[in-house]
């Protein structure tokens, strides 16, 4: 059910978008090209990030260090059901979107997009935010220095989001 409905959201939204735009007499092709150019520019800026993350994660994994960390953290992670391969993503996600995208790309490429880790990484990427970037930029833009309980509360949201992602992934696909 969840899977079928998911499959329809994006195609439905694209069709709806085009119909609404045509009804308003918008030159859809020109607008598409203008947006696509922005997309290309963004993706080109991401390239160095992705290469940098691939090298770092590759060394971390191929050296056997990841396997060691996995064994070491198993007593802590296994009860939660969280695979160790996901840890670098969990730590980097609140700080950098580009780095997180590099990590997700790497996880999907290494373990496959339809593996358990691959699905979990996709769901996490889909519902988390670059928390520290948002906090720094938004608070900095109005010159606020005392943020009270905003930071711990935002981090609580991240942690709950990660656990909820894990739970939903297990619920929909199992292990």
């Amino acid at each position: 059910m969840l899977v079928t409905a998911s499959a329809w959201i994006l195609p439905g939204l694209i069709a709806l978008t085009l119909l609404a735009a045509m009804a308003r007499g918008i030159n859809v092709y020109d607008e598409f090209i203008a947006g696509a150019s922005d997309g290309v520019r963004l993706a080109v800026r991401l390239l160095p990030h992705i290469i940098g993350i691939y090298v770092a994660i590759g060394l971390f994994r191929e050296s056997g260090f990841l396997a060691w960390v996995t064994r070491l953290s198993a007593p802590l992670l296994v009860p939660l059901g969280l695979p160790a391969e996901i840890l670098p993503l969990v730590f980097i996600r609140p700080f950098s979107l580009a780095a997180a995208m590099g990590m997700v790309t790497n996880i999907l490429g290494t373990y496959g997009p339809d593996s358990f880790v691959g699905r979990l990484a996709s769901v996490m990427q889909g519902n988390s935010e670059t928390t520290f970037y948002v906090l720094t930029v938004y608070l900095g833009s109005v010159g606020i220095r005392r943020s009270q309980y905003a930071v711990p509360l935002c981090l609580l949201g991240d942690v709950v989001g990660y656990l909820a992602s894990l739970w939903m992934t297990l619920l929909v696909w199992g292990r």
Binding site: S6, I9, G126, A164
Partner: peptide, 23 residues
């Protein structure tokens, strides 16, 4: 996330929409 899955060759890139939204 959907874009990353699509470019990694996922069978159904958008299956994660509802799980991610619920989370």
């Amino acid at each position: 996330a959907i874009a990353l899955r699509a470019s990694a060759g996922a069978a159904e890139p958008s299956v994660i929409i509802l799980p991610a939204a619920l989370a």
